[in-house]
Simulated scan of single mutants.
Amino acid sequence: MLNANIYSLFLALWLFVLHAIIFFGQAWKRIYLILTATMLVDLDHLLVDPIFQANRCSINFHYLHT
């Protein structure tokens, strides 16, 4: 399971690179940083227990969603 999660993360990062290069050309590095930074907002999901709860609102519960 851990290998699948790591594979998914690297796949997402490579797709960000491809999208940034294809659609934004010379500004791809800046766009890549913006796309990657959007993933940082969801890191706070790893700090709560349980990580996922179907009926929970993220606002005022997750640290980076407030």
Rank of each mutant, 00 (worst) to 15 (best):
M1K: 03
M1N: 04
N3D: 13
N3G: 04
A4C: 09
A4P: 00
A4R: 05
A4F: 02
N5R: 03
I6K: 03
Y7R: 07
Y7F: 09
Y7G: 02
Y7M: 08
Y7A: 15
S8H: 06
L9N: 01
F10S: 10
F10T: 05
A12L: 04
A12G: 00
W14I: 06
W14T: 12
W14F: 08
L15Y: 02
F16H: 09
F16W: 04
V17I: 11
L18T: 03
A20C: 03
A20E: 07
A20I: 08
I21W: 01
I21G: 02
I21C: 06
I21A: 10
I22T: 07
I22D: 02
F24P: 04
G25I: 02
Q26G: 01
A27F: 00
A27D: 09
A27Y: 00
W28F: 14
K29C: 02
R30C: 02
I31S: 01
I31G: 00
I31N: 01
Y32R: 09
Y32E: 05
I34D: 03
I34K: 07
L35Q: 12
L35K: 04
L35F: 13
T36I: 09
T36Y: 03
A37D: 09
T38C: 15
M39C: 15
L40Q: 01
L40H: 01
L40M: 15
L40S: 06
V41H: 12
D42F: 13
D42C: 12
D42T: 11
L43D: 11
L43E: 10
L43I: 14
L43K: 11
D44H: 11
D44M: 11
L47S: 14
L47H: 07
V48I: 15
P50R: 11
Q53M: 15
Q53Y: 15
A54F: 12
N55C: 12
R56F: 09
I59D: 07
F61R: 10
H62L: 15
H62Q: 13
Y63R: 11
Y63E: 13
L64C: 11
H65T: 05
H65P: 06
H65F: 13
T66N: 13
T66F: 01
